[in-house]
Simulated assay, not measured.
Amino acid sequence: MNNFKVEKKGPFRIIGFKTVLTGGTSIHSPHFSSQKTTFFKSAIDNGQMAALRPLAEGPYGYAVVAKEGETVCYYPGVQSSQALPASAEEVWFPESEYLILSGSGGLSRLAFDKLEDQAFGTILTDTFEWEYSGTPVAEVLLNGNPVDAEVEVWVPVQKRNNR
């Protein structure tokens, strides 16, 4: 598994539309997958994603998974510093080190799920020098094709205290 690296990223902002995910309280749960797919499809079908596209400051599509207290929320959207459109919300990502996992082929949701399983189930264990920092996780669609996707997952990390 040589599909990951740790890299520093500057601060950035994602604007998108929010839904609450149910069935889990951690940032990553298998219960979230179908909920993310359903909400993302509805945001496309009702024109919300098309309304965000002109505000995008890059070619990538984004989705965010963020904890708000004990609630986990999901925001499909775009990276932008433009004014927030009606009914959209913003998620700020701090300057941080990020565990960046890359994958390609197949449906984007399956690729994102596989990379998040790898991050939280295989890599970010007690033996890895980095740990999840608790801030939002970004799912990034690099090629704009959710059927034959090229994706990355950006998990914010910090050095473990005992390293």
Rank of each mutant, 00 (worst) to 15 (best):
residue 77 G to H: 01
residue 59 P to F: 11
residue 147 V to D: 12
residue 81 S to F: 07
residue 63 A to C: 11
residue 111 A to M: 13
residue 129 E to Q: 12
residue 56 A to I: 10
residue 155 V to F: 00
residue 152 E to Y: 02
residue 152 E to R: 06
residue 92 W to R: 15
residue 123 I to T: 06
residue 67 K to C: 05
residue 157 V to Y: 00
residue 14 I to A: 02
residue 91 V to I: 15
residue 66 A to V: 15
residue 56 A to P: 14
residue 98 Y to C: 07
residue 24 G to Y: 07
residue 93 F to Q: 05
residue 53 R to H: 08
residue 74 Y to M: 06
residue 77 G to W: 05
residue 158 Q to K: 14
residue 4 F to G: 02
residue 104 S to H: 15
residue 69 G to I: 10
residue 5 K to P: 02
residue 71 T to I: 15
residue 53 R to D: 05
residue 124 L to Y: 01
residue 138 A to L: 07
residue 31 H to V: 03
residue 105 G to M: 12
residue 56 A to S: 15
residue 1 M to C: 05
residue 57 E to W: 09
residue 160 R to D: 05
residue 144 G to Q: 07
residue 151 V to H: 00
residue 95 E to N: 07
residue 77 G to V: 14
residue 37 T to Q: 14
residue 85 P to F: 09
residue 65 V to Y: 00
residue 52 L to N: 02
residue 15 I to Y: 01
residue 128 F to T: 06
residue 61 G to H: 03
residue 99 L to T: 08
residue 149 A to K: 01
residue 76 P to S: 15
residue 52 L to T: 02
residue 98 Y to T: 06
residue 6 V to H: 00
residue 17 F to D: 01
residue 105 G to K: 11
residue 31 H to G: 07
residue 105 G to W: 13
residue 2 N to P: 05
residue 53 R to F: 04
residue 51 A to S: 14
residue 93 F to H: 09
residue 27 I to D: 00
residue 38 T to F: 03
residue 81 S to E: 12
residue 19 T to M: 14
residue 118 Q to V: 14
residue 10 G to V: 08
residue 49 M to L: 15
residue 58 G to A: 13
residue 100 I to T: 04
residue 148 D to S: 10
residue 138 A to P: 02
residue 90 E to C: 10
residue 115 L to S: 06
residue 9 K to P: 03
residue 131 E to T: 04
residue 163 R to E: 07
residue 114 K to F: 07
residue 21 L to M: 08
residue 74 Y to P: 00
residue 94 P to Q: 15
residue 133 S to F: 02
residue 135 T to P: 01
residue 45 D to R: 11
residue 28 H to A: 05
